[in-house]
């Protein structure tokens, strides 16, 4: 983990209210796990909490990485207005547990289910899996056509099968990622998921085959991002204790946490 004023190489609107920010800096060399996130300070003095944003891709040779975030409030709005050439204060990479992209075999059935701004860490995971010669199936859910991003990027990955679901049916297939999951008819060996909590619960409820190794990336309002303040905890499945999302995760086996 480093604290660095990273250079904004690019910052562009890629879907409704959704921005893709490319950052350059030395901490890129430490990014190794899909699921890892950067804790980004908002320019200005009045917003004291950093914004945790998951990494969508990393270019180790070029020394840059991309973050995708949605403009949902005062902080992300200010980040959206940053220009190339500006610098942002970044702490990271954070998160000690990512998606286990090194484990699936090439012949394994690997399914990625993402919703909205939960899609970025899955793209990073898909890139790593594709790089290892593992084919992946991807089901992505968005509200409507204008919210869709990274469809092409996923399709460009070798062996990547992409299915887009929209709530209003304006693109792809009308329905939820759960419907696509159920229609798919077979249970994957690996399932990586990230998205709204309700979607994750539905994925779990849709029934994971006992042999499916399921992992979920969680988000929560965070304070420190390093496991000190205990703001972003989640309950364990047996409700006996908490896990820190920022430090113990943000990726957990489905069966470990209570969604």
């Amino acid at each position: 983990m480093k604290n660095e004023k990273m250079l904004i190489v690019d910052n562009r609107l890629i879907a409704a209210g959704t921005y893709e920010m490319t950052l350059a800096g030395t901490l890129v060399s430490e990014i190794s796990r899909p699921g890892a996130f950067l804790h980004v300070a908002v320019p200005g003095e009045d917003l004291v909490l950093r914004r945790p944003i998951s990494i969508a891709s990393v270019d180790h040779e070029g020394g840059s990485c991309t973050l995708i975030f949605k403009d949902v409030g005062a902080g992300t709005e200010r980040l959206a207005r940053c220009h190339p050439g500006d610098r942002v204060d970044v702490l990271g990479p954070l998160g000690q547990q990512g998606f286990p992209v090194d484990e699936p075999y090439a012949a394994d059935d690997v399914l990625l289910i993402g919703g909205g701004v939960g899609v970025p860490p899955l793209y990073y995971a898909a890139c790593e899996l594709a790089g290892r010669g593992v084919s992946v199936s991807v089901i992505l859910g968005f509200q409507t056509t204008s919210a869709i991003f990274y469809e092409e990027q996923f399709r460009e990955l070798p062996g990547c099968d992409v299915r887009i679901m929209t709530d209003d049916g304006s693109y792809g297939q009308k329905g939820t990622v759960i419907e696509a999951f159920e229609e798919r008819g077979k249970r994957p060996d690996w399932l990586f998921s990230c998205g709204p909590r309700g979607m994750l619960r539905a994925v779990e409820k849709a029934g994971m085959h006992p042999h499916t190794k399921g992992y979920v990336s969680l988000e929560e309002r965070m304070g420190c991002g390093v496991g000190v303040c205990l703001a972003c905890v989640c309950e364990t499945e047996d409700r006996s204790s908490y896990r820190k999302i920022c430090r113990d995760g943000p990726v957990f086996p489905f069966k470990e946490v209570l969604l």
């Binding site: 003095e45 009045d46 917003l47 004291v48 909490l49 902080g75 929560e220 309002r221 965070m222 304070g223 303040c229 205990l230 703001a231 972003c232 905890v233 989640c234 204790s241 908490y242």
Partner: peptide
């Protein structure tokens, strides 16, 4: 102690609210 349910923090102008609950 396990502390309070989440959300446990909220941002405020030049500050933050926390209700960790002594975990």
């Amino acid at each position: 102690r396990l502390g309070n349910p989440t959300p446990r923090v909220a941002e405020t102008p030049s500050g933050m609210l926390n209700a960790i609950g002594l975990q």
